[in-house]
Each structure stands twice: as C-alpha cells, then as structure tokens.
C-alpha cells in the first residue's frame, strides 16, 4: 500500500529523533493521526516554544528562559563554589541529587582534536573571566571519566592554577548499592587508588 505523503513525511521526521527507529516512528505518526486536534496543537506549541523561549544563561550557559538561569539568579545558591560540567544536561543530573548548592559552568563539550573541539570552541574563556571577576573560591571539575573528559580536566586544572582557587575533581568509584563482584576491574582499581581514610 502506498503511504499518503503527509504521513510519510511525518514518519521520516520522527525517525530522525534519537532512539526512534522506522517502526516506532510509524507507530507515533499513526497515533498522532488518530489523536484529537487539541492534543496535536499542544504538542506543536510545546515544540515551537522550545526553541523560541529557551536560550542559554549568559553567565553559566545553562538552559534558561531569562537572561540568567534559575540557578544563577537564585540568591540562596552559594556563589563561592562553582561546578564545571560538559553539557547543560549534566546540571539536571547533579541537581537531582540535592547535594550541591553552588553554581555551575557549562563547557559545551570537551577537548577532542579529532572532532575539531578545541579551547576556542568551548566556553573556557568565559569561565576564566567569570572566575577573575567573582567571589568564587572553589572549583569542582565534574567531567565524564573518559579519555577526553580526563584530559580536559587536566587542562583546566593547569589553566586555573595561577588563580589560587581550591580545585577538585569529582570522585570516581563504585555505585551505591552495587556489588564489588559485579563491578569491572578498572572501576574497582580506580576505587582502590582513590580510597579515603575513615
């Protein structure tokens, strides 16, 4: 059977989304087709709003509706401690823990010469000027523990050293509630190296 063109276009567009395959896209398109107009409008509206209303915080590059994001403009946040993350989505992950009450800085990636990602393409200059002008005393580097994240942490640590701030990197080790026997060797090895005294 020939699929009507508008349906085919919708399927094509949907299947461009991450973790959506052809079949799922078809199911979604057919589901939307049978939904009532009100729901469709509300969906279209929300998608249009995404781009129109959400920008980046001018201070920390977090997602933000206003010029400053909710975190930067919140007077209750501790403005002396700053956490550096790779992407804005990492802020959401850290915020969910309720363990951190400081402010953030989003790099927008990590150093990766192979992918053409360098100091200039990341928000590093902005980080530096922010640190120079503010009351920040401590910086926590919370980048992913892979080769590129690690090397970016090393880069930043060296770059920030002259500013005489307290610089640390998030600990890595075993997940809570996990079993030693199921963890991989590299994780256990790092956890042993990074042990803390009691």
């Amino acid at each position: 059977m020939q699929i009507p063109e508008p349906l085919q276009i919708a399927i094509d567009e949907l299947s461009k989304l991450p973790s959506i395959g052809r079949k799922t896209a078809m199911r979604l398109a057919l589901h939307l087709l049978s939904s009532d107009q009100e729901r469709i409008d509300s969906l279209i509206h929300s998608i249009a709003d995404l781009k129109a209303k959400i920008g980046f915080c001018t201070d920390c590059f977090n997602f933000s509706v206003n010029e400053l994001c909710d975190i930067c403009s919140n007077p209750k946040r501790d403005k002396t401690i700053l956490c550096v993350v790779e992407e804005a989505s990492d802020i959401i992950a850290i915020e969910r823990t309720n363990e951190f009450s400081g402010i953030y800085h989003v790099l927008g990636g990590v150093l990766s010469p192979l992918d053409g990602s360098s100091v200039e393409s990341l928000n590093i200059r902005e980080l530096l000027s922010r640190l120079r002008e503010s009351e920040i005393k401590e910086v926590i580097l919370a980048l992913n523990p892979n080769t590129e994240g690690e090397s970016t942490s090393l880069y930043l640590a060296k770059l920030l050293k002259p500013l005489s701030l307290n610089i640390s990197r998030i600990a890595r080790g075993l997940p809570i509630g996990g079993d030693l026997e199921f963890a991989d060797e590299a994780t256990i090895g790092r956890a042993v190296l990074g042990r803390i005294s009691l």
Partner: peptide, 13 residues
C-alpha cells in the same frame, strides 16, 4: 598559544 596549552594537557594524559 591556545593549541600549545591544549597539548600540555594531552602530555599529562
């Protein structure tokens, strides 16, 4: 100068 600083980080790595 920027790239050379990056190189320092990869040296450490």
């Amino acid at each position: 100068a920027g790239l050379l600083q990056e190189l320092d980080a990869w040296d450490l790595m």
